[in-house]
Amino acid sequence: MEGTHFVFWNWTIAVYLFVAGVSAGAFAISVLAYFIGEEKYEDIARIGAYIAPFPLIIGLVFLIYDLERPFTFWKLLVTVQINSVMSLGAWLLLVFSILSFLNFYFWLPDRIDLAEFIREKLKNRDKPAVLCRIRDSRFLESMTRPHLKRFRPLLGLIGMPVALFVGIYTGVLLGVLSPRPFWNNPMLPMLFLVSALKTGTASVCFIGCFIMGMKGMSREKVETNKFVIHSVDFFLMILSMITIILFIFGLYTVSRNSAEAAKLIMGGEYTFLFWGFAVVVGILVPFCLEIYELFPHFVDHTALREHNPWISGVTTAAVLVGGFVLRYVIVYAGQATLYITS
């Protein structure tokens, strides 16, 4: 092991980076849909809000499991180390998981009302006084369903930058490590952010168009929700192609070491995984399917195709697989490179 490279972060870290991106992307797309058209794109906003918290929780479990001492993870949250991206990221993830659970609660159906439930339970009690004061407080009143909707835009405004930061942070975490030429690339955080948004959008589309769309979808929904989610996905794919090209371009030009590191994906050990899965399965196949879906609208200017859940399903599943393989390749390839001096 000494002087050579050994793997200290295994696939659990890749899973974590992937699902944190899915969460951040789902949250961001949910808030975006809410701001663009509250009524029109309600489905996207709702599904995004329902998805967002759960991949993150799985990711945190993986992240903690990867520690050599999993039960000491709380030490991350009793200190702030300004210089450490991981310390800042731990706090960021804490804030984001709270916000995404709040958003989840705000979007639940009206019949689930925690505040009303508490008030109902305490209705006939007159002591202790503390409970009565809680019951009659204006805070609890403002937490009942009819009032809760007003908090959605506020939460969106706060949560959107936090979600974007989470998407960027997963890249910055690796990107700041100057001895690892494969990671130390200014395009890496951007690549992770675009991939996060893309996989988040895909996860919303997977639930909305594939699982819920299995039974068929009304024409109106095809023209609003489905069209928008596929268009967003389409443009993010173009963006991710550009970032991948610039990432490789950066590897070749930043330094001799990173050009050496680029060989890992350009003919080296991870070539097939990177080009076969992360690029072809993750971007090109869904890109072609999106073109097929959106062609009538963008080019022919005719009505959209009839809803076929399998096209949406294959597109989004491919994006999700590609997003995971991209993280996997980057985590492993980064550890296989170390700065070399002559």
Binding site: R69, L76, L177
Partner: peptide, 17 residues
């Protein structure tokens, strides 16, 4: 006592020691 074993320092060390 404070080390949680996140291995971030291993990734950050240029000397791999």
């Amino acid at each position: 006592k404070d080390c949680i074993g996140c291995k971030y320092c291993i990734a950050a060390c240029p000397y791999n020691v």
